[in-house]
Design a protein around this nucleic acid. Structure first.
Length: 418
RNA sequence: GGAGAGGUGGCCGAGCGGUUGAAGGCGGUUGACUCGAAAUCAACUGUGCGCAUCUGCGCACCGCAGGUUCGAAUCCUGUCCUCUCCGCCA
């Protein structure tokens, strides 16, 4: 949620921002509703104020055992008007909020203008892309031959976009989770969290999933499966007033993530690139407003470190205005090289949401006796399944085996998958 | 799942129909004392919204949503949550 002052004082800024994002939010409608809402509020407050004064007076008279029938009669005359005005105000409020919650975050100036992922701007490359003496296979081909991923049985149990990890595959996934958690907790200063995987409606609103992306979430008895650990981690401090000295707050969590992937039919149907359920190690930071862009660089680097230690080539791109997410002001995607696909694929997305989520979730801190909203950042560190994909493809051998990256061997327990 | 207790400000905790946004304590801020600190004393100290923006004024909020009433933290209904006991169970 944006500061409403932006709508009132800088509607042109808001308009330009929405254009860059190809959003069809009607700013004029918002301005109009806000104006009406304020007028309605003033009217209601006046009526209530009047009633409060009279009621107080009645109380004083009754205490003195005096008659107050004239005053009671007077108040009763306004009762109906109060009811009507209140109803009207609530109606206008709901109408305004319905749109307001759909307004995306303001983009940072460094975000390139563009329609989609083709307009993302590469800012960094790391690692040497290996030349294979044979035609490198895609991960699902390697995995099926090694019998470490079972797509058929995944489908049998749960349908498409579900998989069963078996043997060394399951062990590789687990090794990666532990490797990432150890790195971020021991080297990068994050506190490890195991959050609930099922959350309430308000929590989904807090991080920006709802109301816009309601279709993406699995629902169960009015609660929702988390699409990312970002949701519970950021909301950990919802409706709290933090201390200035608390910052920066850095959390890391491994969780399963659940996404319906509505509207992605036909994309990445083969393999484990796009699953309804997948594992992710997530990084979240809360910072003071002035520190968030430095924190974004740090967090993105923390995520990259996983790939560097695993010797996986990658690049970093800044998402363009048309590709960036709803809550983010700026996002770096980290894309890992996949020789089987002969291209880079997203393995992490690191965003600064400024105070957008903090406002939605009402997370604040006091500074100089004034309330401030902290900034929240999130990033995958990393998507575990896609990391498995990257290892299988980058470390595949001609004989069909897969070498385990040196730093991962202590976690995995052996040097090869055969 | 059954029975009971309870949800009040950053925290603890009183209030149980009237001038209560809410006693008291803790915490916090500022000042006094001190070479400094501690202790002590004094003052201040909830959040959100609207209006005015030089001190200000009004409204709302005592889990949440309704209701009763001239008036609700206090009464009623529903709902959510927490705790205790029993049952079941990883």
């Amino acid at each position: 949620m944006l500061d409403i002052a932006i709508l009132r004082k800088e509607p042109e800024l808001l308009r330009r921002n929405l254009e860059k994002r190809f959003s069809d939010i009607d700013v004029d409608r918002l301005l109009e509703l806000d104006k009406k809402l304020r007028k309605q509020k003033a009217e209601l407050d006046n009526l209530l104020s009047n009633r409060n004064k009279l009621s107080k007076e009645i109380g004083i008279r009754k205490k003195k055992r005096e008659n107050a029938d004239d005053l009671i009669k007077k108040v009763n005359e306004t009762a109906e008007r109060i009811k009507e005005t209140e109803a009207l105000y609530n109606e206008k409020y709901d109408e305004f909020m319905k749109i307001w919650l759909l307004v995306p975050n303001l983009l940072d100036d460094s975000v390139p203008f563009g329609k989609d992922e083709n307009d993302n701007v590469e800012v960094k490359r790391w690692g040497d892309i290996k030349n294979f003496d044979f035609k490198p296979l895609e991960h699902f081909e390697i995995a099926t031959k090694l019998d470490i991923l079972d797509f058929e049985r995944g489908a049998k149990l749960s349908g498409s976009r579900f998989v069963v990890y078996k043997g060394a595959g399951a062990r590789l996934e687990r090794a990666l989770i532990n490797f990432m958690l150890d790195l971020h907790t021991k080297q990068h200063g994050y506190k490890e969290i195991i959050p609930p995987y099922i959350v309430n409606e308000e929590v989904m609103v807090g991080t920006g999933q709802f109301p816009k992306f309601r279709d993406e979430a699995y629902e169960t008895d009015g609660q929702y499966l988390i699409p990312t650990a970002e949701v519970p981690l950021v909301n950990l401090h919802r409706e709290e007033i933090l201390k200035e000295s608390d910052f920066p707050i850095k959390y890391v969590a491994y969780t399963a993530c659940f996404r319906k992937e509505a509207g992605s039919y036909g994309r990445d149907v083969k393999g484990i690139i796009r699953q309804h359920q997948f594992n992710k190690v997530e990084l979240v930071q809360f910072t003071k407003a002035e520190d968030s862009f430095d924190a974004l660089e740090e967090l993105t680097n923390d995520a990259q470190e996983v790939l560097r230690l695993l010797g996986l080539p990658y690049r970093v791109v800044i998402l363009s205005s048309g590709d960036i997410g709803f809550s983010a002001a700026k996002t770096y995607d980290i894309e890992v090289w996949l020789p089987g696909q002969n291209r880079y694929r997203e393995i992490s997305s690191c965003s600064n949401t400024l105070d957008f989520q903090a406002r939605r979730a009402s997370i604040r801190y006091k500074k100089d006796s004034k309330m401030h909203f902290p900034h929240t950042l999130n990033g995958s560190g990393l998507a575990v399944g896609r990391c498995v994909v990257a290892i299988l493809e980058n470390y595949q051998q001609e004989d069909g085996s897969v070498k385990i990256p040196e730093k991962l061997v202590p976690y995995f327990g052996s040097e090869f998958i055969r």
